[in-house]
Design a protein around this nucleic acid. Sequence first.
DNA 1: ACCGCCGGTAGACAGCGTCTACGCCCACCT
DNA 2: AGGTGGGCGTAGACGCTGTCTACCGGCGGT
Lengths: 194, 194
Amino acid sequence: MSPEETGVRARLVAAGVDLVLREGQSAVSLREIARRAGVSHGAPRRYFPTHVDLLSAIAREGFADLTARVEKTMDAAGEDPRTRLVALARTYLDFAAAHRGMFELMFRHDLLASGRLRLRETSLPLFTLLVDLVARARQPADKPAPVLAGALWANLHGIAQLWAWGSLPLATGATDDDTLLRAALDAHLGPAPH
Amino acid sequence: MSPEETGVRARLVAAGVDLVLREGQSAVSLREIARRAGVSHGAPRRYFPTHVDLLSAIAREGFADLTARVEKTMDAAGEDPRTRLVALARTYLDFAAAHRGMFELMFRHDLLASGRLRLRETSLPLFTLLVDLVARARQPADKPAPVLAGALWANLHGIAQLWAWGSLPLATGATDDDTLLRAALDAHLGPAPH
DNA sequence: ACCGCCGGTAGACAGCGTCTACGCCCACCT
DNA sequence: AGGTGGGCGTAGACGCTGTCTACCGGCGGT
């Protein structure tokens, strides 16, 4: 069977992912997705009661993609937890920059009505990974790993968002987000060993 | 003159601010704002060429409000830079929590087309304040103040966003954002003096 | 007195999300 | 073998949105 003959549900999600990656959030209208999936505008309703349900499914795909990318880069990052953390952080920021539309969608909690589609649980594996890494990289005197990891994630996320907004480079004088990334890691985990 | 007789432009912005505070982002449609301001749906066009221009004006009001709140709480925060930083951070997080709709709008850079209405410059005074405080609170061996301030702001912003999203408490086990706030400040500025 | 323009109205248009009525076609049951 | 029911997709309607355009009333300048 040709790829066009897969289920309508999967085609809708795929078309949505493609659209948000290519054109950004504003392009992901229900009718446009239906058009690209080759079905009528009423068809999605059979699988997603409402527009936000479809958007949530698309965002979940985004989280899965991000998680997969992180795991992949970590395979090549060696064993040192600190190095692995750097790789994770870089992947996070790169993802946000390269797939800005998807990244924005993923954190539109006002849209996603996260409760229904268990979207929060979708992002949990990634965070668990982060906690483990932090637990191995932290100094004994540091705060508990989950707190440290939460603060670090927040920092990472803030960098991604504010950087995308274009405000940080102007204000900090930094010409790349790497400066901020290293500052964040050094701050939360102590200065780099070498 | 009664308050209803002020200029249409100001009434539009005021109605928009009121709407976004009360009902959230999704309620701030051009036509609804016009309705609340008591004018026809075509009137806003005279002052704001497009919807996003009006939204940008509303967001600017939000930045002004936040800046005013920060300055106010800092008046009562004494002289110690670290104490002032805590006050600033708390005000930032409280603002995000209390005026969620406005906070979300303020950072919808995909909507705001920030270039046109100099929105970035609007947030600059706040950041400058942060840089000054950091410069006074940092240790001599630390990174330059703008970088430190940028990283700290990103951390603060990430906490606000992820906290609002409801994901952090679940993952970190923390029941309030204060834990993360303190973790962030300790990380970027060294452990609290007392 | 006339003209022009500023500021607001009102209607049209395309696109949106949602709802409903309708048909198709396949699977199952007697 | 002959209905028959239900899942799946279509098509049209509705009210809403943002934008565009034609209109018009009243005020100021010449």
